[in-house]
Simulated assay, not measured.
Amino acid sequence: MNSAPTLDGDIPVGNWIDRHVPAVLRPYLRLMRLDRPIGTWLLLFPCWWSIALAGDGQPDWLLMGLFAVGAVVMRGAGCTINDIADHKFDAQVERTRGRPIPSGAVTLKQAWAFLVAQLLVGLAILVTLPPVAIALGVGSLALVFPYPLMKRITWWPQAWLGLTFNWGALMGWAAVTGDMALPPLLFYAAGILWTLGYDTIYAHQDKEDDALIGVKSTALRLAAATPRWVVGFYAGTLVLMAAAGWAADLGLAFYPLLGVAGLQLAWQVATGDIDDSADCLEKFKSNRWFGWLVLGAILAGKVA
């Protein structure tokens, strides 16, 4: 029987990577965060939402699979960019000093080469899409590359993450229809507010270290007022999603199921403790269930 994984900082140790992957590849899979898939889910759901929203009742499962692969690769590329930019900061933070670059398991030169390889895989997927989706995919790089710098210049880097992580809400629709419309724009705006909520919760894990080393975040900016702000972010998320459903002529089944998804967000706020790092991580990870619930609501609205 395999023992349960433990944590070295924020890195799971003793999991499937250690058990089944050759030692030479392990640092690269950890650089991609393949052993921590929640980030991939959070990047993927806006893509899936808009693909389902644009469909004619039956989503394009092949396209959804293609976006899933793309989300894995591009989330890995984003993590690699982030770790290259932040390796000096990461070395000063207890939770992140064991990551591949600050620990010395991967050199900066190796990380850059690995980043290029991931971007080439992402490009190979991107060129299979319609021209509008390709243009949007290329345009997303203008958001991806500056993101690690945002925590140095603004108290709201989570807003920039929202712009970046929810870009798939535009790309998914364009991949199905070849154009742009109001429903995906509303879902994109909703996703930005969703990200502001869950990533502010996540940022409370590092607020003491961030304050010491001079890194900014909404967790530090909002401080004890965070729960009230997160309520506002999440409420805006639901209002904009409801508006997107109306703009897309979804059936009535969409709205009560969206309400169920809203209960998941309410649970996060009602039971969360921003001074408990483990609880912040749990609430952050629970957004995977919100993503599934919203997807189910869209599909139900399409069927209805």
Score class of each variant (00 low, 15 high):
Ser3Gly: 12
Ser3Arg: 11
Pro5Val: 11
Gly9Asp: 09
Pro12Phe: 12
Val13Glu: 13
Gly14Lys: 02
Asp18His: 13
Asp18Glu: 14
Pro22Val: 13
Val24Tyr: 10
Leu25Arg: 06
Arg26Asn: 06
Pro27Asn: 08
Tyr28Glu: 02
Arg30Tyr: 08
Arg33Val: 08
Leu34Phe: 15
Ile38Leu: 09
Trp41Leu: 13
Leu42Val: 10
Leu43His: 04
Leu43Ser: 03
Phe45Gly: 04
Cys47Trp: 08
Ile51Ala: 05
Ile51Arg: 01
Asp56Leu: 05
Gly65Cys: 12
Val69Tyr: 01
Val69Cys: 14
Thr80Ile: 09
Ile84Thr: 09
Asp86Glu: 11
Lys88Arg: 15
Pro100Phe: 03
Ala105Met: 11
Ala105Phe: 02
Trp112Thr: 06
Phe114Asn: 02
Val116Arg: 02
Leu126Tyr: 06
Ile134Pro: 02
Ile134Trp: 11
Gly139Arg: 11
Arg152Val: 03
Gln158Phe: 02
Trp160Asp: 03
Leu163Cys: 13
Leu163Gln: 03
Trp167Asp: 03
Gly168Ile: 06
Leu170Pro: 10
Gly172Asn: 07
Ala174Asp: 05
Ala174Lys: 04
Val176Phe: 01
Thr177Phe: 01
Gly178Ala: 08
Asp179Glu: 14
Met180Val: 14
Met180His: 07
Leu193Pro: 04
Trp194Asp: 05
Trp194Gly: 02
Thr195Gln: 01
Leu196Tyr: 03
Gly197Tyr: 05
Tyr198Phe: 15
Asp199Met: 10
Thr200Gln: 09
Thr200Ala: 11
Ala203Ser: 15
Gln205His: 08
Gln205Asp: 04
Lys207Glu: 10
Ile213Thr: 09
Gly214Val: 11
Gly214Cys: 12
Leu222Trp: 15
Ala223Lys: 10
Ala224Arg: 14
Trp229His: 15
Val230Ser: 05
Gly236Glu: 10
Thr237Met: 13
Leu238Cys: 06
Val239Met: 11
Ala242Phe: 02
Asp249Gly: 10
Phe254Trp: 04
Pro256Glu: 00
Leu258Asp: 00
Val260Cys: 00
Gln264Ile: 12
Val269Leu: 06
Thr271Arg: 13
Asp276Gly: 05
Asp276Ala: 07
Ser277Trp: 00
Ala278Arg: 01
Cys280Ile: 01
Cys280Asn: 11
Lys283Ser: 09
Asn287Arg: 01
Asn287Phe: 04
Asn287Ile: 06
Arg288Asp: 02
Arg288Met: 12
Trp289Cys: 02
Leu293His: 05
Leu295Thr: 00
Val303Gly: 00
Ala304Arg: 00
